[in-house]
Design a protein around this nucleic acid. Sequence first.
RNA 1: GCCAGGGUAGUCUAGUGGUUAGGCAGCGGACUGCAGAUCCGCACUACAUGAGUUCGAAUCUCAUCCCUGGCUCCA
Length: 476
Amino acid sequence: MVLKLYNTLTRKKEEFRPIKKGEVGIYTCGPTVYDCAHIGNFRAYVFEDVLKRYLRYRGYRVRHVMNLTDVDDKTIAGSKKEGIPLNEFTARYIRIFFDDIKTLNIEPAGVYPKATEHIDEMVALIKKLLEKGVAYHGEDGSIYFDISKFEGYGRLSKVRFDESKESKERTKLDEYAKDEVRDFALWKAWTPRDGDVFWDTEIGKGRPGWHIECSAMSMKYLGDTFDIHAGGVDLVFPHHENEIAQSVSATGKRFVNYWVHNEHLLVEGRKMSKSLGNFYTLRDLLERGHDPNAIRYLLLSSHYRQKLNFTFKRLNAARNTVQRLSDFLDRIKNAGGLVGKEWNEKLHKETIKTKERFDDAMDDDLNTPRALAAMFNLVNRTNRAIENKNASKENLEEVYDLFMKFDSVLKILEHREHKKDEIPEELEELIKRREEARKRRDWETADSIRDLLKEKGVIIEDTPDGPRWKKINTDP
RNA sequence: GCCAGGGUAGUCUAGUGGUUAGGCAGCGGACUGCAGAUCCGCACUACAUGAGUUCGAAUCUCAUCCCUGGCUCCA
């Protein structure tokens, strides 16, 4: 099987073929660092993370570039409001962003170019567009891209640009300095509102438009044509459409081979927005006691091109699911006296088949729900084999290794590689005392200690091999 | 208006022209001092509605109803 990805450009699943054998260049639109990212942002980042990890699982070397938009209306407004320099303001949110992706087990990109550090590249690109006559100076001194000069405009988003009545009316309504509403800014001339945020360049005093940074930086780090460009659906238009226009006009080459876009996330059935009060950052969820693994699992439990309805009910269900998987791994890791002696050929075949099913599902446009279903199937079969003492140590090791392999892509199992969690000594002591009570058949003492431990967030399970404990989440 | 995506058992998600869907929740049983975990079983053969194509449709076609998103900064 070959990996297939749904390409927004063709609206079809296409076999993925990299430009350079064994290597993939991928550019993902990163955060505008003026605030904490929210769970909708993280759906995109987690999806991109899984895409990247799966490519690697498939044996590709991946070069991943993610931009940090650190100059735009919002970052300027934010820094002005706080009376601190722009870079100081954005540094704070960049730090938070990196903390957050670490929490969600998102692997950092290889390069995180900042817009403010690539002004030269952007200016060079804009100059090229001016020379080619596809860009023009507006009355306000800003530089705009003339979309009528780019034949393929609208191909990605399938937006048609006939001179509709509506758009003409809007041109009249707003006082635009540009010729046509759909034309977009490459370079924004300085205005007093920008304060000390400006660059004095050959093309004037001002700052870059939003779209140009992605064209300039992606091509700088990945080449004029690269493999995959990813982002949320909202970016299809106008952002990515504009990137194509700029890049192709400048180089005359194809810009990106595969455009992949993830659908949005709804919260309790509605669009997430601050006014509806259903706007959550990762920090909000952590404060409520939710487990990052559960959040990540929830984000992967629907297909990425499907709208995902984020609810607390589902998040709690996700926590239980992740817990069960984690329990399962603990079980097969420490099966001890539970295992049989004989190699179970049937379970072995089932294990092999599970890998095939997982790979097939992921090859099919990263169908994570189907991949998860394959995993649960093996969980059930393995549990049954253990129950019947019909699995050998080697069988269980094989299953365990396979799950670790799956988790190198999904990253929803415990991060701690199953080394024992630390718990305070006093709790260890309680567990010991409870065991002593149980030996005396003093159930009353044993049970009260168990309740006490539960209050302290530790659940005790008695097994034939002695007591086992695990921490519990205290989700709402 | 234009461009999209949906409606699948209590619930959430996959999927498919004919064969037992996966998770979560619930109930009963086994196991256990009890609990938990696990196993077995149950509700349960489920696909918005109507018509058509077909030997056969939940899947394909047409129509209808309902939900959501984008078209302006947005993952």
